[in-house]
């Protein structure tokens, strides 16, 4: 294999990997949106007590 051919293959590999990473970012974002719309907890405990997060029995 010549250097030129190797460079071509690597370029293709890198762009495929790039596409997959972009697709992954979009997917994670979509999952986030879907979970939020499904009513997932949007607030969590910080370093202090958060009375508004506690279940009222």
């Amino acid at each position: 294999m010549t250097d030129d051919e190797i460079r071509k293959i690597r370029k293709k590999n890198n762009s495929m990997l790039g596409l997959i990473l972009v697709a992954f970012v979009i997917l994670v974002f979509s999952i986030t949106v879907a979970k939020m719309m499904g009513g997932a907890t949007m607030e969590a405990y910080d370093h202090v007590r958060r009375p508004q997060l506690e279940q009222i029995n």
């Binding site: 294999m1 010549t2 250097d3 051919e5 190797i6 460079r7 293959i9 690597r10 293709k12 590999n13």
Partner: peptide
């Protein structure tokens, strides 16, 4: 740099 490109072994493709 390009000097590190291996010319002998197979370059795996995607």
């Amino acid at each position: 740099t390009e000097a590190t490109i291996k010319t002998t072994s197979d370059q795996p493709d995607f």
